[in-house]
Amino acid sequence: MDERAVAWWRSQLLVTTAVPVVVLAVLGALIGPARFWLLLAAGAIAALGLGCAAFFPAWWFRVHRWEVTDEAVYVRTGALWQEWRIAPMSRIQTVDTVRGPLEQLFRLGTVTVTTASSKGALRIAGLDHELAAELGERLTALTQATPGDAT
């Protein structure tokens, strides 16, 4: 996981809180009678968002781990609800590399590994974009080299 992921998560959280805060603030500025309550709600959401943005990304960065060996892909995520996911190479069906607008800004990428199961997808988020592309290629090559129909 790249250290820029922390900044990426932080800006993601800030953007998601900014939207309702701005809407509420604009409404508060326009609607006189309900101004106090609207601005109060906006302030509460802003405080909550800022708190989350300050606290969670660093924690997430500490607990997110991933590993790719010749046999399997392994991802560990979650702080309160920890989750380990393992998919062996022979069962991997598709490897996607995705870069959203914010990720592009921070030069990051996400690799999604899907298996034949509808519930077994693995996401490795917040990788350096070159590493992500390289990992995608490596996984594709490894998957192709492994026989079997992946079900």
Binding site: G78, L80, W81, Q82, E83, W84, R85, I86, A87, P88, R91, T115, A116, S117, K119, G120, A150, T151
Partner: peptide, 23 residues
């Protein structure tokens, strides 16, 4: 075709985990 191991905060305290076999 894969395993997922999940553990919530309370499960961690109780020393148990939920194992999911994906297929």
């Amino acid at each position: 075709i894969g395993w997922t191991v999940k553990q919530s905060y309370f499960q961690r305290r109780a020393g148990v985990l939920t194992l999911t076999a994906t297929t």
